[in-house]
C-alpha cells in the first residue's frame, strides 16, 4: 500500500510539472495565474501524502490547511491585482461613475476603452 501511495505521489508530481509548462509558456499573465492555482491545489494533496508516508499526518494536516487558504488568497489577490493593473487609469475613473462595462456586442464596441493601447 505504501508503494501505491508513493507512485500516486510521484505521478501527481509529474502532472504538476506538465502544468508548469502552462505557467512558463502561457501566452498571457492570467494563464500563468491559472496554472499556479492548479499546481497549488494539488500541492495540498501531495503534502498529505507525504504526511501519511512520514507517519505524522496530524502535523502535516495543519500545514496543508494553511497552504490551501494561502493558495486561495494568493489566487484572488493576483487576479484582482492584474485586473486593476490592466485597466488604464482614465477609464478606471470613468467606470467608477457608470456600472462596470457590459460585455461588448459586435455592433456596440466597448466605449471608453480606446485609450488602452499604451
Amino acid at each position: 500500500m505504501e508503494q501505491f501511495l508513493i507512485s500516486i505521489g510521484v505521478a501527481l508530481l509529474l502532472l504538476m510539472l506538465m502544468s508548469l509548462f502552462r505557467v512558463v509558456a502561457g501566452p498571457t499573465v492570467i494563464d500563468r495565474i491559472l496554472g499556479v492555482n492548479v499546481i497549488g491545489i494539488k500541492t495540498v494533496v501531495l503534502i498529505i501524502i507525504v504526511g501519511i508516508l512520514d507517519g505524522r499526518v496530524e502535523m502535516f494536516i495543519d500545514i496543508a490547511l494553511a497552504y490551501a487558504l494561502l493558495n486561495f488568497i494568493t489566487t484572488i489577490a493576483a487576479a484582482r491585482f492584474y485586473q486593476r493593473q490592466s485597466q488604464p487609469a482614465a477609464a478606471d475613473a470613468e467606470e467608477a461613475k457608470t456600472a462596470p462595462s457590459a460585455p461588448p456586442t459586435a455592433e456596440n464596441p466597448p466605449a471608453g476603452k480606446e485609450g488602452s493601447h499604451a
Binding site: 495565474i33 490551501a68 484572488i76
Partner: peptide, 20 residues
C-alpha cells in the same frame, strides 16, 4: 474548503481575464 474556494477563485480569474 476546496469546494467553496475553487469556484470562487475560478470566477475571480475568468472575470479578470474578461476585463483585460
Amino acid at each position: 474548503f476546496v469546494f467553496l474556494a475553487s469556484p470562487t477563485a475560478t470566477h475571480a480569474i475568468i472575470d479578470a481575464g474578461y476585463e483585460a
